Simulated assay, not measured.
Amino acid sequence: MAVTIKDVAKRANVAPSTVSRVIANSSRISDKTKERVRKAMDELGYHPNFNARSLAIKSTKTIGIVMPNSAKIAFQNPFFPEVIRGISMKAYQEGYGLYLSTGQTEEEILEEVKQMVYGGRVDGILLLYSRVNDKVMPFLLEQNFPFVLIGRPYNIDESRVSYVNNDNFKAAKTVTEYLMLLGHERIGFIGGNLDYVVTIDHMKGYEQALKNANIPIRKEFIVHHEELQEGGQEAVIEVMSLVERPTALIVADDIMTFGVLKMLADMNVEVPKDMSIVSFNNVMISELSSPTMTTVDIHIYDLGFEATKCLINKISDPECGEKKIIVPHKLIKRQSCK
């Protein structure tokens, strides 16, 4: 016969309502009592029926994660596994499961989000990107559904949205100034997709640093490609075909930089002797490349952890108000600059 909450309560010498609160990880129950009840659950082999519980309390204990495109493409970029690692850690601590979107187009992603909301599949949603002409965010605002954005809202009043972000404008401005301090004036910019707000903020920071130094902004030095290794390779071909080439490159993402380094090596262009490179994200491959990448550590894990923490607060307290959290960044100097 199946073990019930009453059986657990009897073994732990507490009321059945206390067992229910322990399952819900209620802050009203002491750690000592939680430990005793969980021990009783383990001894009896009791597993909560979360489906029945969801119907009773109208909660799924599940968070939806919305990717910018299909997992197949997104997971080629180490940013997404790392940010999801931060999300999973906080979700696990709070007893939440994760529901991952798999849509491959904007329309499919929006339809999937509608199913999450209308079907009551999740308690809240994490958006792992900020798009210029986004359709998901306006829908979630219209439905008054709990969500947190990793990134910065675009063309939407920031006071209406909780978001976790880096100061991407400042980060790009800082790395441009760093290259200028090393003596570079012909600085190229290899950005990601212009549909994403992070690319726009990076480009604005780069341009502002050049303006402050009275260095002309050369449009031929600015190229944009998808943030994949192949995107970096294609961007280098464009930049290196110029009559007057840059002496330094700012690249939007470490995985793109890996492609940049590979293509420059094929062209017999030595880094940093002939070309200095600064990147963003500080994922593991930045230390494994040859030479090792100078890059901006944006603390990807913290972005995911803090966004999840913020979302769970919104779910438990819908009146808590919107929050803006800026995760600090740090320039990591390695061997790709001269």
Rank of each mutant, 00 (worst) to 15 (best):
V3W: 03
K6E: 12
N13S: 11
V22K: 00
I23N: 00
A24Q: 08
S26T: 01
T33P: 04
K34V: 04
G45A: 13
I57T: 15
T60W: 12
G64C: 09
S70I: 05
A71D: 02
F75W: 12
F75Q: 03
P78N: 12
F80W: 04
I84N: 01
S88N: 14
L100C: 01
L100P: 00
E107Y: 14
E108F: 04
I109L: 14
M116S: 02
I125W: 03
R131W: 02
M137Y: 02
P138L: 12
L140T: 02
N144H: 13
F147M: 02
R152S: 12
N155H: 10
N155L: 13
S159R: 15
V161I: 14
Y163H: 13
N166G: 07
K170G: 01
T176L: 06
G183I: 08
E185K: 15
G188R: 06
G192N: 05
M203C: 13
M203E: 13
K204Y: 01
Y206H: 00
E207I: 15
E207F: 02
L210R: 07
K211V: 08
K211E: 13
K211Y: 11
N212E: 15
N212D: 15
P216A: 14
I217N: 09
R218L: 14
V223P: 00
Q229S: 10
G232M: 10
E238K: 15
E238P: 02
R245E: 07
A252C: 11
D254Y: 06
V260A: 07
V260W: 01
K262V: 08
K262F: 02
M263Y: 10
V269H: 06
K273L: 13
M275W: 02
S276R: 09
I277Q: 05
S286M: 11
E287G: 12
S289P: 04
P291F: 03
T294P: 00
V296C: 03
I298W: 00
Y301M: 12
L303R: 08
L311E: 04
I312S: 00
I315R: 01
G321C: 03
K323Y: 09
K324L: 10
I325Q: 08
I325W: 01
I326A: 10
V327S: 12
H329D: 07
S336K: 06
K338D: 10
K338W: 06
